[in-house]
Every structure is written in C-alpha cells, then in structure tokens.
Design a protein around this nucleic acid. Structure first.
Length: 343
DNA sequence: TTCAATGTTTAGAC
DNA sequence: GGTCTAAACATTGA
C-alpha cells in the first residue's frame, strides 16, 4: 500500500516537472549540459581563447590542488593548446565534463591514441556554460542569468563572472562563468587520462549496467558506521550524487539521512538502491524538458523547489503526509527529511 | 563581520 | 591500515 502511494506520488511529481531546473550541478545537471554541448559544439573550431581567471585553468594530469598555483606560462600553454582545435564530443564521468578535442590537422596515428587533447571541466557549485551564436544573441540581446543569482537582473556576457571565453571561427562563443570560482578547466592528452587522479577514484556510474545491487551492497556495507547520506554522497561508493539527490533518494527510500549503514536492513538498503536510478533519471528528464533554454537564458530557474520533496524544504509541509520537514547537519552539510515518511 | 553554500581533499581521531 | 568525522579550501553575497 505504502509502496503504491509512493509510486503514485512519484509519477504525479514527475508530470508536474516541465518547467523545473535545479541550480547546483549534480549528475543530472551535468548530463544535461553534456547533451546540450554535444549538439552545439560538435565540429566547431576554436579561433581564440581568453582566460580572465588564471587559477581556474591548468595543463597536465596533476591533482586539482596544484591548479591553484597557475602561472602565466601555464595559462599561455592552455590557450595555445586549444587554439585551432575542434570539439569532437563531450562526455561525463561523475560530475566531471570531458571534452574531446582534435588536433589542428589530424594525422592518422599508428595506434589511434595519444593524439587528441581532452579538456576536463568541473563546475563545482556555480559553474555555468553558455553557448552563444548570432541567432541566440539576436534573440536575447546578450542578456543572461547567472547561476545562484535568481533575483539579480540579467547580465551582459562576458560579465564579471565570465572567466574563460572560447571564440569559434564561425563567430560563435562559449562562455564559462563561475560566480564562486570553485570550478576548473584542465587539459590533458588522451594518453594521460589514466593518470588523472580524480578519475581513478570515482566509483561506479549509477546509471551504468555495472552498478548492480550487489555492487552497491558491497561498497556501502564497507562503511557500516557511516551515515547513509554521507555514504551516498561519497564518489568512491557511487559517482555523481550530491546533497540534493541524496536527500531526494532517501526520502523515496523512507530512510533518514542520519541512519548508520549497519542499522539499515537489507530491505531498506535495497529500497535506497532502487530509488537511485529513477530519481536521477527524473532529474535528467526535468532538464531535458527545459533543455532548449538551459544553456541559454533559462526562464525556468527559480522553480526547482517544485520538484523536490525534501531538499531545501525545511519547515515546509511534506508533500506526501503533511508533516513538517526537518533538517540536520551532517559533516557540515544540511540533510533534509520528513520525520514521518522516513524512519 | 560572520555565516552558509558545494564537491573534494586532508588531517586527525578512533 | 582502514574507517570516520570535522575542518579546510576555493569565493561570494546576504
């Protein structure tokens, strides 16, 4: 009975999702950006690159913290490596975007590897891509909204939070904006990809076939004293789940974020596993329906609350039972839950 | 001026 | 040594 109710609620909320968009990029948001950029950037050739925040770009597979010591030389290298290259495709691993860029004049490589340059981009909290061509500029007048600035007026791009600009030979632009400057861009050769530390440490992709219940149980049960929310957010256990989606998954699974893994029955843990995919897919579909506007000026911003059952809803009524949503601090993060629906 | 926001890393405790 | 927690970090705006 309870299962039927939760399924019904889930379907209803999915239907009411058309104009929804979340702000913090987690897996579904990053996937949306990947889908969007794949369409828009394919085969575009870079004419020039402008870098206004040297600390946000780097060359080589070294770890992220090394990026912050960027020098003028590495910025110049970053720019010269990109000039003349063509975007082939964009992929995603966890919340990391991976751009595949061709050599300026592709020559066949004996092994077909070690030729292309990869650009790894992490958006962190407030990173944003806006692709602009003549058509879009005419439509928007060059006015865009920034992440996390829902109440602010539209801004012109490039603006003070535009840190990297890609100019293409056909006159179109790709802007990389980031209010907090927590994000980064990093160039590696494709044969260096195995040396990139953050890629080595990611656990399974939750939407991948390899992410089985057995794999999930094995990874989670190693952390028997860990709190389930923190374990879900650990990229080594499963990639791409952040604060928003862990809250939502645990709501549907009926487990409080503070529950220790060891206190969860196999049935409860199976429920957590069961809800991971549908909640993430729902997120991707929500973006999908507003995808045409997402990288442009996204009129749907500010409506994200509509689709969340618990995230960011402390003090409001539970959409399922009417109880007041509570919040708890877990390692500096806020976890929201319904005290009635989640045991 | 302090606080909160995030994913990720690190230091220190257990 | 592995697991777990809290603090730190990048920065801005309320």
């Amino acid at each position: 009975m309870r299962n039927n109710n939760s399924l019904l609620n889930f379907i209803i909320s999915t239907i009411s999702l058309f104009l929804t968009s979340a702000i913090m990029p987690e897996l579904p948001e990053v996937q949306t950006i990947v889908n969007e950029l794949n369409r828009k950037l394919k085969n575009r050739t870079i004419k020039s690159v402008e870098v206004n925040a040297p600390k946000m770009v780097a060359v080589g597979p070294s770890i992220v913290s090394n990026i912050r010591t960027a020098s003028k030389r590495s910025v110049n290298k970053f720019i010269s490596l990109l000039k003349g290259k063509k975007f082939l495709s964009v992929k995603r691993r966890a919340k990391l975007l991976i751009f595949d860029l061709s050599e300026p004049s592709p020559r066949p490589s004996p092994r077909g590897r070690g030729r292309n340059t990869l650009m790894l981009v992490h958006l962190k909290m407030t990173g944003q891509f806006i692709f602009e061509d003549k058509k879009l500029r005419a439509k928007t007048g060059g006015q865009y909204r920034m992440f996390n600035k829902l109440s602010a007026p539209f801004v012109k791009l490039p603006g003070k939070h535009t840190h990297v600009i890609f100019k293409f030979v056909d006159g179109s632009h790709l802007y990389f904006n980031d209010i907090r400057k927590f994000g980064y861009m990093k160039l590696v050769r494709d044969n260096e990809i195995n040396q990139v530390k953050e890629l080595q440490e990611y656990g399974p992709e939750p939407l991948d076939k390899k992410f089985t219940m057995r794999a999930f149980f094995t990874a989670v049960k190693k952390r028997h004293h860990g709190k389930i929310k923190q374990v879900l957010m650990d990229p080594k256990v499963v990639a791409g789940i952040g604060n928003i989606y862990s809250d939502e998954i645990l709501f549907h699974a009926g487990a409080r974020p503070t529950r220790a893994v060891s206190s969860l029955t196999d049935k409860e843990l199976a429920a957590v596993y069961k809800w991971i995919k549908p909640v993430l897919i729902k997120g991707i579909k929500a973006k999908g329906s507003s995808v045409g506007d997402f990288v442009r000026t996204d009129g749907s911003w500010g409506q994200m609350g509509k689709f969340h059952f618990v995230y960011g809803r402390k003090g409001q009524k539970c959409k399922r039972c009417g109880s007041t949503i509570e919040a708890v601090k877990l390692g500096g993060r806020t976890g929201s839950f319904c005290p009635h629906c989640q045991k």
